[in-house]
Design a protein around this nucleic acid. Structure first.
Lengths: 331, 331
DNA sequence: TTGTACGCGTTATCAC
DNA sequence: GTGATAACGCGTACAA
């Protein structure tokens, strides 16, 4: 790898001049510029991002961090994809990490990102009071939250109207005549989960129904917990006639529990899941879902982050995107 | 962020001593060591990975790059997850990028990785003669190939026995009585695709059948091309009675084309796909697939890379993992 | 317009 | 044992 030194030697100028040519500083006469550019080309010079980052404190590392719970979750994969595309468009690279909803892993990766001097970080906080994230923010690191919010700290935030999505899903179920609607929720520390649950409760209340604790089960957003909890609900003496499941993986798990019991959907049990899946159309039956615009969430979060990197003082904004109920054949 | 300087000042020693304490060099007496450690703690010192990387040429960046075609493809998501877990176990971070099967994007990201001085790179090459990758290897950068191989260059490689997987899938179809077996393949420049196609042809030949060109369609590994090409095959005057689809996304697409035409699976048309899906069980019908151990591919590739980083001279090895035919109800 | 020299935070090589 | 000090590759004030 050729360094500035070598280029300068070859072009018979100083490293400062080479640097000026590279940084488009116009204080260099055409002749020398040409010579430098030739040397640059001949040696196939590529600046070291590492050295550059060490020198400049302000944000031009062209590197941003993303911490997500699980890249195998299609929702986060789509979100990451949106981030990636937006980052690539601005020639930023992405340091991507899985937190696994695990505070230790999150802490480790936040440390790595600080030590790497990334320009900024995007993440869905693990809980509304995520101390690790707040500490990082205290150092002045630009942080944008996606999907989930923080209660104490004010950050840029791109979220989906979870309350409304849930409200519409449950209303849809009520319209179909269901009165006993089971709920499978995830971790109650996360803001999205609570919003969705609130939408569920309010939709029931608006129909003159109370939410009944025995129809509610709390899991951890994973497929296996969806399977287990749906099983519990289905095996009740008086099972619900419909299931509302608060994320994609748990919905797939619930479907497995249903198939295992040879139940028909939607005749025996109707199902609505939060989050769409690329193959929801080909599931048995095609699944009714609340679709979140995950790609756009990611894209806009990245754009917000890049703007904040340029303009640190700007007051934080919240972008709220709309989810969409897609009625297929499971309801 | 506290630097070595500040720690040294606080502990009333030189930066060299602090550095020795950090790097577990035992040439430091207990008393000073304690003082330094206290200063370290009080200032919450964290070394700058950037400065460290600039100084040390040999592999302790604790950063590796991964370039994959598409993080939204469950196969690559699982592979990335395996890599991530193995990397995390050794406290390495991952620079993750999507190439989109696009040589320009791959080239851009390879450049970023070199400029970041990553310790090594893992990727499935875009083609068997991927010049961009070969150039990077020429600089001495450790490279491990996954999934796909390179024809000219010798690298560590973790792959799956694609030939055998395809052979078994087609044999399974033959056993079920099928004689007209359609093939939907991907890009023929990639080694895995060619191996799978060879397995298809050989299995047919072993049964005394030739592979018939009119039953073969070439796509690009994407869902949409699976849908289109399956449509073409299904709309033939004399359509095939079974479909073998060479990757997961195209299989989902093919399923959509089948459902759109109201055909029954497997009565009207049987389907086997390459690559398992976490929800294959819940598809309509549960899908018969050739399962690749993607997580293990990723994990082993990362382990190979980390070993190569430590021991550059080691002769390249090839690890070949076995795929597994999982017969569900689509055949 | 161009060159010299310093600093960014480390690691490593010398002296002492 | 410990402390100066020279790199690493780059950007930039300042001098020429």
């Amino acid at each position: 790898m050729a360094s500035l030194q070598e280029v300068a030697r070859r072009a018979k100028v100083s490293i400062a001049t080479v640097s000026r040519v590279l940084n488009k500083s116009d204080k260099v006469v055409a002749g020398t510029r040409a010579a430098v550019e030739r040397a640059l080309r001949e040696l196939d010079y590529r600046p070291s991002r590492v050295a550059r980052r060490l020198r400049k404190k302000d944000g031009r590392a062209h590197l941003v961090g993303l911490i997500i719970p699980d890249i195998q979750n299609p929702f986060y994969a789509e979100l990451a994809r949106g981030m990636e595309d937006a980052a690539y468009a601005s020639e930023y690279a992405l340091l991507l990490c899985n937190s696994d909803e695990n505070i230790e892993k999150e802490r480790f990766y936040l440390g790595v990102m600080q030590a790497e001097s990334v320009d900024g970080i995007v993440l869905p906080p693990l809980s509304e009071t995520d101390a690790a994230v707040e500490e990082v923010m205290a150092t002045g690191m630009p942080v944008v939250c996606v999907d989930r919010s923080l209660s104490r700290a004010r950050t840029d935030l791109v979220e989906v109207d979870n309350y409304r999505g849930a409200y519409e899903a449950v209303t849809h179920l009520l319209d179909k005549g269901h009165r006993r609607i089971g709920l499978i929720e995830g971790r109650s520390q996360v803001s999205t989960n609570r919003e969705r649950r609130r939408g569920y409760a309010d939709a029931l209340a608006a129909a003159g129904l109370g939410s009944r604790e025995e129809l509610i089960r709390a899991g951890d957003f994973r497929q296996e917990s969806g399977r287990l909890l749906a099983g519990e609900l289905l095996d009740m003496k008086r099972p619900p006639t419909a299931l509302f499941v608060l994320n994609n993986l748990m919905t797939v798990g619930a479907l497995a529990a249903i198939h295992q019991r040879q139940l028909r959907v939607p005749q025996d049990i109707a199902v609505v899941g939060f989050d769409d899946l690329p193959w929801a159309e080909s599931l048995d039956p095609p699944l009714t879902v609340v679709r979140q615009p995950a790609y756009d969430v990611g894209r806009q979060a990245m754009e917000l982050l890049l703007r904040r990197i340029m303009e640190a003082g700007r007051p934080p904004v919240t972008v709220r995107l709309l989810p969409q109920l897609i009625a297929r054949r499971s309801t």
